[in-house]
Amino acid sequence: MKKLSLAVLLSLSAVASGAYAQSDQGVTMSTDPAKIADIESRAQNLQTQQDNMQNMHTQSSSHKSMHHKKAPKPAAGSTQ
């Protein structure tokens, strides 16, 4: 029981320290047109990559569904 409590305590402290380390950057605002253009360009590239990945997943799913499935075998004792 003590080992479990120690593991939980360590896990919680690791999560808390990670959250604290991330909070000091915060959200910044910039009026620099070059920075704004760079960020918008990165966002557009990410969106394009996500769309491409989603399209590839959709195409692979539809391709798999086009395969013919084997007909089920008739049950034993049934006549056709």
Rank of each mutant, 00 (worst) to 15 (best):
71 A>Y: 01
48 T>D: 05
31 T>H: 04
37 A>I: 00
72 P>D: 02
4 L>P: 00
53 M>N: 14
32 D>K: 06
28 T>P: 00
66 M>I: 14
67 H>M: 09
67 H>D: 05
11 S>Q: 03
24 D>Y: 06
46 L>R: 07
47 Q>S: 14
55 N>T: 06
63 H>Y: 06
30 S>E: 02
55 N>R: 02
9 L>Y: 07
48 T>K: 14
30 S>F: 00
15 V>D: 01
12 L>W: 03
75 A>N: 05
11 S>N: 09
25 Q>P: 07
16 A>K: 02
60 S>W: 10
12 L>F: 07
45 N>H: 08
75 A>F: 15
34 A>C: 02
44 Q>M: 14
76 A>V: 02
75 A>D: 09
24 D>C: 05
32 D>V: 13
42 R>Q: 15
8 V>Y: 05
65 S>V: 02
41 S>R: 14
58 T>R: 11
74 P>I: 01
74 P>G: 14
22 Q>M: 15
32 D>E: 12
32 D>T: 07
9 L>N: 04
77 G>Y: 04
64 K>D: 03
25 Q>L: 07
15 V>F: 08
21 A>Y: 04
32 D>A: 09
1 M>G: 12
36 I>K: 01
57 H>W: 13
59 Q>N: 04
12 L>N: 14
14 A>P: 00
55 N>L: 03
20 Y>E: 10
21 A>N: 10
16 A>N: 06
42 R>E: 09
57 H>G: 10
14 A>F: 04
30 S>Q: 01
27 V>G: 01
78 S>C: 02
20 Y>H: 05
27 V>C: 13
20 Y>S: 11
11 S>C: 09
4 L>N: 13
30 S>M: 00
52 N>H: 04
43 A>R: 14
25 Q>D: 12
66 M>F: 04
35 K>G: 08
27 V>I: 15
29 M>R: 02
21 A>C: 08
44 Q>F: 15
3 K>W: 07
18 G>E: 05
